Amino acid sequence: MTVPTPATASDRSLLPAAVLWDMDGTLVDTEPYWMAAEEELVASFGGSWTHEKALQLVGQGLWTSAEILRANGVAMEPDAIVSWLTDQVQHKLETLGVPWRPGAQELLSSLRASGVPTALVTMSVRRMAEQIVAQIPFEAFDLIVSGDEVEQPKPHPEPYLRAAGLLGVDVRDVVAIEDSVVGLTSAVASGAMAIGVPHIVPLPESDEHVLWTTLAGRTADDIAAVAAARTQTPEA
């Protein structure tokens, strides 16, 4: 997707109705925490967990990931797997700190200063999402949609459709920011304008989404440009 030069976001009409954020890998660099927890869990049942296997779980719903781990020898119920993994990652967040992705908090601050509604749309459970959001030194999100609150996880569009519905906006008027193929698939399928910011896994070029190499240096003006690109693109 071709994006025009950023306009001045002080003109509120140029901005999207909302910006919806993925969490793991987009807002925070927690994927290494998850991968370490997965490796420890599989090893405790005598199995091996490679980096390539771990990449399959990036962006997936936790209960989907739990079934993949069960197929790799983890003899636990899905709910127990999700709870154990979440406990491990939350412990790392408490002891090692929250690893923010470059530019994420700054872009959030710019959007809030411009009056743009925001939501966190994560496949992690709410208790972990709230732990991370509590570390942001300003009111960053109007609401959270978490993986334990949806029936169909990403790549299904339900999480983004739910967030737009709770905000009371048309999903086609929102921008979603994602770092995984699974997340981008969910956002695009919902009808949202999608921005992919590659991190652990590469993202493909596509007319269905915009790719940014980083969030560093990005502001509400850049988000406005993405929204403007859809407005200027004729419907098929």
Rank of each mutant, 00 (worst) to 15 (best):
Q105I: 10
T86F: 08
T86S: 11
W21I: 00
H199V: 15
V19G: 12
V121I: 00
Q88R: 15
A224H: 04
P78W: 09
R126T: 14
A189Y: 06
L108E: 02
K92F: 05
T213D: 12
G217N: 13
A75F: 03
E77P: 00
S124R: 07
D148N: 15
R112A: 04
L14T: 07
V133W: 09
L167C: 13
R218F: 13
M76D: 03
V210I: 03
A216R: 15
Y160Q: 09
R127A: 07
E149I: 13
L69M: 08
E151F: 02
D148T: 05
W84G: 00
V133D: 12
A17Y: 00
R12W: 03
R70N: 01
G61W: 05
K92G: 13
Q90C: 07
V42T: 14
A37G: 15
V181Y: 01
S10R: 14
M76K: 10
G168P: 07
P157R: 04
A220Y: 00
A192N: 04
M76T: 09
E208H: 11
L215V: 04
D24E: 12
L107P: 07
V171T: 00
A187I: 14
P99T: 04
S83D: 09
V98F: 04
V226D: 01
H51T: 10
L120C: 12
A187S: 06
G103R: 15
A227I: 01
A220I: 08
A187Y: 10
P153E: 12
P117V: 07
A75D: 04
E77V: 03
D148E: 03
S114L: 06
S48W: 11
V150C: 08
L108K: 03
L27V: 04
A54W: 09
T26V: 11
E52C: 15
A66Q: 14
K53E: 15
D222T: 03
K92V: 15
V3F: 10
G46V: 02
A164M: 10
A9L: 03
V82E: 12
A140V: 01
Y33E: 10
D170M: 00
A66R: 11
V89A: 06
P78I: 09
I177D: 07
D22T: 04
I144H: 06
E67K: 06
A225Y: 10
D148Q: 01
A43V: 11
D24Q: 05
L120Q: 12
G147S: 13
V19N: 00
Q232K: 09
P78N: 14
L62A: 15
T50Y: 13
E38R: 09
Q105D: 07
D170E: 05
S186N: 03
V89F: 11
M35V: 14
T8I: 15
V82D: 09
M123A: 08
M35P: 04
G59S: 13
N72A: 11
V42F: 01
V150R: 07
E38D: 12
L215P: 14
G115R: 14
